[in-house]
C-alpha cells in the first residue's frame, strides 16, 4: 500500500490494515478486502448502527458497531473470533424470530440481505422462540408496497429518503417491540415516495418492494444463490 503520512495503522484479527482519519472500522476494513457483516449500513448513507450485526471487539475489551466507530492508531479489532461470530449469529437469529419472515413466498428471497446473512452464518433454525408479531401491510401506493412483517428496522429507507431523495417519507414510531416504520401521511400513497426514488431500493429485506417485476430473476441467477454475501468485498484482497 502507498505510504501516506496521514494514514492510520491498526489491526483486524492481527493483520495490519491502513485507513484514513475519519474512516470507520467498516469502511477501512472494506478497502482492505475484509468483510464485516452488516445489514443496516448502506454506502453513502449516514451509518445508523442499529442492527449491530457489524459488532466487533476492540482492544480485547469492548464491543462496538464497526459502521459507526472511527479508527485510531494502534487499534486492535477482533472481527472473527468465535465470541464475536456467535454474538452476531444470535443477533441475526433474533431478527428472524422478531419478524414474520416467510422466505418461501417472499419475492425478495435469493436477493435478501437478511436471508443471505443467515446463509453465510450457517443458521439452520433460530434457537429463540418465534414471536409471530402482528404487523401491517400497506399496498396503497400504485408502484410500491411496504410489508412491516419483514421489516428489520434498519432505517435505510428513512435515511435514504431524507439524505438522497430529499423527502421525508419514512420515520420510526414506538419503542421496543412496538417500534415500527411509519409513513408521512395516512398511508404510503399519501407520501411523495416514487418508484424511481433511491429509498424504494434501499430495503435490505422484502419490506419495501416494487409491485411489478416480482420473481424476475430465476432461482440460480439470484444475488446470493452461489456466492455468500460479502464475497465481493473479500475478493478484493487478491488485487
Amino acid at each position: 500500500m502507498e505510504q501516506n503520512l496521514e494514514a492510520i495503522t491498526f489491526t483486524i484479527d492481527g493483520v495490519e490494515v491502513q485507513g484514513m482519519p475519519g474512516q470507520t472500522i467498516l469502511e477501512a476494513a472494506e478497502e482492505a478486502g475484509i468483510y464485516v457483516p452488516r445489514l443496516c449500513q448502506l454506502k453513502g448513507i449516514t451509518p445508523h448502527g442499529s442492527c449491530r450485526v457489524c459488532t466487533v471487539k476492540v482492544g480485547g475489551s469492548w464491543t462496538c458497531a464497526a459502521c459507526t466507530q472511527p479508527i485510531y492508531e494502534g487499534m486492535e479489532v477482533d472481527n472473527s473470533s468465535e465470541e464475536i461470530q456467535t454474538l452476531r449469529k444470535d443477533l441475526v437469529e433474533m431478527l428472524f424470530t422478531e419478524g414474520n419472515h416467510y422466505c418461501m413466498f417472499c419475492d425478495k428471497s435469493g436477493n435478501c440481505e437478511l436471508q443471505a446473512m443467515a446463509y453465510r452464518m450457517g443458521i439452520m433454525a433460530p434457537k429463540y422462540p418465534y414471536i409471530y408479531p402482528e404487523a401491517e401491510l400497506d399496498a396503497s401506493h400504485p408502484d410500491l408496497f411496504i410489508d412491516r412483517n419483514r421489516c428489520i428496522l434498519c432505517a435505510r429507507c428513512v435515511n435514504t429518503a431524507q439524505e438522497q431523495d430529499g423527502k421525508s417519507v419514512f420515520d420510526f414510531a414506538g419503542r421496543g417491540p412496538h417500534k415500527k416504520i411509519i409513513v408521512n401521511g395516512e398511508k404510503l400513497s399519501d407520501t411523495q415516495l416514487a418508484a424511481a426514488d433511491k429509498a424504494a431500493d434501499a430495503c435490505p429485506v422484502g419490506a419495501i418492494l416494487p409491485k411489478k417485476g416480482a420473481y424476475a430473476k430465476p432461482v440460480g441467477a439470484r444475488d446470493y444463490d452461489d456466492a455468500p454475501i460479502g464475497s465481493d468485498i473479500e475478493a478484493k484482497v487478491c488485487k
Partner: peptide
C-alpha cells in the same frame, strides 16, 4: 431432524398465527 421450513419456523400454516 426437523426437515423443511414448516418444521423449523412454522411455515405457511403459521400464517394463521396473526
Amino acid at each position: 431432524i426437523s426437515f423443511g421450513d414448516c418444521a423449523t419456523m412454522g411455515g405457511v400454516p403459521a400464517l394463521r398465527n396473526g
